[in-house]
Design a protein around this nucleic acid. Structure first.
Length: 295
DNA sequence: GCCCAGGAGAAGG
DNA sequence: CCTTCTCATGGG
């Protein structure tokens, strides 16, 4: 992987196993938008960027980012130091269904997102659909967050931090149209503000086991098993977590033959069959079932 | 009008 | 431990 800086953008050569549609449209993140040319503009860690990937030349270009910002933010955010080629090989071995799902979503990568943002994003995600989740999050950022910058003629806002959200009440959140989730958000913000954000950071440490992280997350208001697994997977590096939503349930039922309500069986299968990369496997399955018209 | 969406909490068994 | 009901909101 060769990193260069050109005209204020970062150009990375030799990036394999990447497709921006697969990464940004697989339901793991909600703050990136596609333009007509297939580039993605969005925000993370208080930065804004426009990403373009040339699959033929295997060149990733990040506009709006110098090389220092790339090394400090985007390299880890995009999980560029992980070898997805070998992971895909491991997951596809002896599993015809997974092999097909991987072929279909071959460019998926698990982003390393901000923990607090991921926590509140997936509280909002419950019993909701992705376009509306995006609207809710952007509205929350514009209503209570702070401006982080302007980029390509657009203004970007961060999400309100725990203290700010803890000081709000449900009326303040009314314009965000969060429904019954507003009170969950405020209650969780108060929990986090009280215990300190470091405790949230600690859950992403290698020393904390995946199961410990999961158990700790389910103590927040509005965080059940599915949401906890998403947070652990998408922002805390717990790649074995296997979130089961309505779509994954459909896949496990339709393609792996599980009874629709046998969540325990699905969980056990994922643990034994997909192992340490269960969460990545889950993303291939999710993208497959939500995008492929002919399964 | 009904059903659905990256579900969870509460109540009742 | 399990099952069922309820919870806002907007799109199809």
């Amino acid at each position: 992987m060769i990193v260069r800086e050109r005209d204020g953008a970062t150009v990375v050569e030799g990036v394999a196993d990447m497709d921006l549609d697969h990464i940004f449209d697989c339901g793991q993140c909600f703050r990136w938008e596609r333009d007509e040319e297939g580039r993605y503009m969005g925000t993370a860690y208080g930065r804004q960027a426009l990403m373009d990937y040339d699959g033929k030349e295997r060149i990733l270009t990040i506009y709006g980012s110098d090389e220092e910002e790339f090394e400090n933010v985007w390299r880890r955010y995009l999980d560029l130091d992980r070898d997805y080629g070998s992971i895909k090989k491991e997951l596809a071995a002896g599993d015809e269904v997974m092999a097909r799902a991987i072929e279909y979503g071959q460019g998926i990568r698990i982003l390393n997102q901000e923990k607090w943002e991921t926590l509140i994003s997936f509280i909002i995600s419950q019993n909701n659909n992705i376009p509306r989740i995006k609207k809710c999050i952007n509205s929350l950022a514009e209503t209570l967050g702070e401006k982080t910058g302007e980029f390509c003629g657009r203004e970007f806002y961060s999400l309100p931090d725990a203290e700010r959200l803890a000081a709000a009440d449900v009326e303040d959140l009314a314009p965000c149209r969060l429904g019954y989730r507003a009170k969950y958000l405020i209650e969780t913000a108060r929990q986090v503000a009280e215990e300190g954000v470091e405790s949230l950071e600690r859950l992403g440490s290698e020393e904390v086991s995946s199961k410990e992280t999961f158990d700790a997350l389910t103590r927040y208001c509005g965080v059940g098993p599915k949401v906890a697994n998403c947070i652990a997977l998408f922002s805390m590096g717990k790649l074995d977590r296997f979130p089961i939503d309505v779509w994954v349930r459909k896949v496990m039922n339709g393609l792996y033959g599980f009874d629709e309500k046998d969540l325990k069986g699905m969980e056990r299968f994922a643990e034994e069959h997909f192992g340490r990369y269960g969460g990545i496997a889950q993303q291939y399955l999710f993208y497959y079932i939500t995008h492929c018209k002919e399964i």
